[in-house]
């Protein structure tokens, strides 16, 4: 009874609200694998969400809008790439600036769209798979973008384990000097990591305005970008763990919404804190266990030109 009325819908909601976090986490993971820290995730998601919404509103094509979100993310991340990789700027400062800029720009440009609706993606029962008991209800009565997000971690894994480009990106994140000595081009590889990462983060943003809601409101990113940054550490830079982490957070967010809707006596501000409380907990746990050994060794450091 409780199972069918509460738990399974909650888990399905966890997958849905975990999906934008999953896209963003994988994007940030990609960026960091190349050795660049991007704290602009929150801002990139906000800008991408707006770009996707406006595209869908104007063209009526959700698919075009989804791509537009990714492209906006890529374009916005390229600012970060230019500042950090070409100008050797501080990665933390540049990322924070990107977040502030992105939140501001999306709120400002989004004013005319507030409260409007645009076509997006709706859940549908995936043929065959949706009839699997329990799992089908949780995972296969979702929208198309959720299904796409299922395969990305596999691509991610494949990219780093089974392609030479993935190996090169990882080498650049670990030790750019060694990559250069091996005849690779660390600067180009870092651009690749930041831009691809930005694209993925942008897809996460697009999910918010195309599937999570079909409306434009302010503050749609709602801290998910920061959660993604923390989740990369929680996941020890591995895509499989990112999936678990993203759904865990999606679950907490969905749970918190449900509790509010049921009208508990717990103040809503406390409930809203839950995901961040969990973030801190998760970071403590991973610091305690992981000892940062899995972090790319050159993460956060710039490539100084030699002479």
């Amino acid at each position: 009874m409780l199972m069918w009325e509460f738990i399974i819908p909650l888990m399905a909601a966890a997958v849905q609200s975990g999906t934008p976090i999953l896209y963003a986490t994988l994007g940030e993971m990609m960026t960091e694998k190349g050795g660049v820290l991007n704290l602009g995730v929150e801002g990139i998601m906000a800008v991408a969400a707006l770009a996707a919404f406006v595209t869908s509103f104007a063209t009526g094509s959700p698919w075009l809008a989804f791509l537009a979100g990714g492209t906006a993310g890529l374009a916005f991340a390229s600012l970060h790439a230019f500042v950090c990789i070409t100008c050797l700027g501080n990665q933390v400062v540049s990322g924070l600036a990107l977040t502030i800029l992105g939140l501001g720009v999306s709120t400002f440009l989004g004013v005319p769209y507030v409260g409007l609706a645009a076509p997006g993606f709706d859940p549908f029962a995936f043929p065959l798979l949706s009839s699997i008991p329990v799992l089908g209800d949780i995972f296969f009565r979702q929208d198309m973008l959720v299904y796409i997000s299922f395969v990305i971690p596999f691509f991610f894994w494949f990219f780093f384990r089974r392609t030479s480009l993935g190996l090169h990106v990882a080498a650049t994140g670990e030790m750019p000097a060694a990559a250069a000595a091996a005849g690779l081009k660390p600067v180009a590889l870092r651009y690749f990591a930041v831009l691809t990462g930005g694209f993925l983060i942008g897809l996460g943003g697009a999910y918010l305005s195309l599937a999570y809601t079909h409306l434009w409101t302010n503050g749609l990113s709602g801290g998910r970008g920061w959660i993604a940054v923390a989740l990369v550490i929680f996941a020890f830079w591995r895509p499989g763990r990112a999936v678990i982490g993203a759904y865990l957070f999606g679950g907490v967010m969905a749970f918190q919404l449900r509790l509010q809707a049921m009208g508990t006596h717990i103040p809503s501000s406390l409930l809203l804190m839950l995901p961040y409380l969990l973030t801190i907990l998760v970071l403590i746990l991973s610091a305690w266990r992981g000892r940062r050994i899995d972090a790319p060794a050159a993460l956060g450091t710039n490539i100084e030109p030699e002479a």
Partner: peptide, 19 residues
């Protein structure tokens, strides 16, 4: 000039994977 977290084989073939 070796990447500590990678294997011997990966280091030797870095940039020379041949595909």
């Amino acid at each position: 000039m070796l990447v500590d977290s990678m294997t011997v084989a990966e280091n030797v073939l870095l940039g020379q994977e041949g595909g």
